[in-house]
Write a protein that binds this DNA or RNA. Structure first.
Lengths: 128, 128
DNA sequence: CTTAACGTGCTACATTTGTAGCATCCTCGC
DNA sequence: GCGAGGATGCTACAAATGTAGCACGTTAAG
């Protein structure tokens, strides 16, 4: 069974744009992220291609042009990454506490709760 | 000004051994980490070489054999990584709260305090 | 129509990471 | 003194990452 892929740092930058809108074209993603990435349009596109291969985004043609949507929700992906951080960096089996996410610009308090619930269930799974 | 290097996932595994002892030979590091890494001795050594190049460890010959010590303390490195996580994943300028580290097997409560202080000072620096 | 602008598919290429092997050389025990 | 085992220095190589360009086809505007 194919593990869900983790985005690299660069890929994460593009994912952010897709969490803010349900579906975007490569051009739109590029325009939305160029300020932060400073990449050429080509670089953005190649990264999107790879994200598609890895299953991080799902592509679909709309009116003839290719559009992308995040394969995992923001909360689900953040849960994955938080779990990795806890495991690999902190060497902890427990999920990060909600407090860790409090200052994130990406999450409101509802989402933090959702994330917390997800993390708890992920760590229980691990026990089995 | 050469930025302090961040360890990759593999490098982090070896660093852990060096945080538990002040100075170890390649062989000792390998023996201490083999269970987790499952690497060949060669793989361990190559990774150590690269860590030396990057300045993650400092090597010194003792009685003719090469020994390694972590260049940054455990707490300092964890502070770096926690800051990266907050910035890159959570998109937050605030440091992670102490609670985030509570379950880490790597830190006792004194070290968590120290880490917290470090994180705070790091984020202030960023403001300037 | 013709062309400029843009989308798409490919290819490219340097670095970093993950992982390992070989050839020597030194040293300790016999 | 000699040989086995370990230490060292190199080299290797595939995959992942970061970043970009080119050629070609389509389309909308003049």
């Amino acid at each position: 069974m194919a593990q869900l892929a983790r985005p690299s740092g660069s890929e994460l930058k593009l994912l952010r744009a897709l969490w803010a809108a349900p579906r975007l074209s490569a051009r739109e993603i590029h325009d939305a992220t160029e300020a932060r990435t400073k990449w050429s349009y080509s670089a953005t596109r190649t990264t999107l291609d790879r994200m598609e291969e890895k299953g991080l985004v799902k592509a679909k043609a709309v009116h003839g042009i290719k559009t992308y949507a995040a394969a995992q929700s923001k909360v689900a992906m953040l849960a994955l990454l938080a779990q990795d951080f806890a495991r690999n960096v902190l060497d902890s089996d427990e999920p990060l506490p909600a407090a860790a996410f409090a200052h994130s610009k990406l999450l409101d308090s509802d989402e933090i709760e959702e994330l917390q619930a997800l993390l708890d269930s992920l760590s229980e799974e691990g026990e089995r």
